[in-house]
């Protein structure tokens, strides 16, 4: 049996296909302007070389902000539920999840069974999200994947008093012109974003174990800052950016059996 989960995020589209309870194939692609095209492209990329076609998958479930636009998905579940479900597969002991995504950030409280018990999302603005870090990396002219490691080398973080994407960008340019080191600017931004994330976490209540998911959790500098504030070492799975899609694949399996039990 094959179950597919597709997570169309604001910046990245992810697919996880599960077979016999294990991850069979997965991929991460850039989200394009058209969700339908992105959905096909991402699913095809995941299946490329496996000999499996979309129609061979028994049940596909979508999540992420483009979840309602996936033509081959039979159902959709919010990314909040999917992250709780996905992390539970890796770490059943997790009670608190911080999902740091492309355009929003969510703190999720869950029980030991992968169910959400409470959640808080940041407000509408994209300050302190993946898109924001991308923009700063661009200003500093360094690859996004290097942001975390470079920031870790800093010993004197430059304090940013705003994470408004527009103002922080202006500030970053100002500091660069003043001759500040890129590592110190990045470390300062990580500090500001982690403070905001910590505040979200406090609103749902922090309970052991603690995990971080989403694209930003690949930023080691950010993870270190959050760990320091929360006082708990976050559990990180192999690819935390895939957790939403993994959760969707797990929900696909549940839904498949639910639907078939009813028929």
């Amino acid at each position: 049996m094959l179950f597919g989960g597709i997570d169309i995020g604001s910046r990245a589209a992810k697919v996880v296909v599960m077979k016999d309870g294990d991850i069979f194939t997965s991929t991460i692609q850039d989200t394009g302007p058209e969700s339908v095209k992105t959905a096909y492209m991402t699913m095809n990329a995941a299946l490329d070389g496996t000999g499996v076609k979309i129609e061979d998958i028994d049940y596909i479930l979508a999540t992420g902000y483009g979840r309602v636009l996936v033509p081959f998905a039979e159902a959709n579940v919010s990314e909040i539920s999917c992250h709780a479900k996905g992390i539970n597969w890796y770490f059943p002991s997790v009670k608190t999840v911080l999902d740091m995504g492309g355009q929003d950030c969510k703190a999720i409280g869950c029980d030991g069974g992968g169910k959400v018990t409470s959640f808080v999302m940041n407000d509408k603005c994209a300050g302190g999200t993946g898109r924001f870090l991308e923009m700063i990396a661009d200003v500093l002219n360094i690859p996004l994947s290097e942001v975390g490691n470079i920031a870790l080398q800093s010993t004197t973080a430059i304090p940013f008093n705003t994470i408004c994407a527009v103002f922080a960008k202006t500030d970053a340019i100002k500091y660069l012109k003043q001759g500040a080191a890129k590592k110190d600017i990045l470390s300062g931004l990580n500090e500001a974003i982690s403070t905001r994330s910590y505040n979200l976490l406090k609103r749902v209540g922090i309970e052991k174990d603690f995990a971080i998911t989403g694209g930003i959790s690949k930023n080691s500098g950010m993870v270190a800052k959050i760990a320091e504030k929360v006082g708990l070492e976050p559990l990180l799975c192999e690819d935390p950016q895939l957790i939403g899609a993994l959760g969707a694949a797990l929900y696909a399996k549940d839904k498949y059996y639910l639907v078939n039990a009813q028929n």
Binding site: Y65, V77, S78, E79, I80, S81, K115, V116, T117, S118, F119, M121
Partner: peptide, 10 residues
């Protein structure tokens, strides 16, 4: 809408 959906799922 995402929040409402997640709330209903919860």
């Amino acid at each position: 809408a995402t929040r409402v959906q997640a709330f209903l799922e919860m």
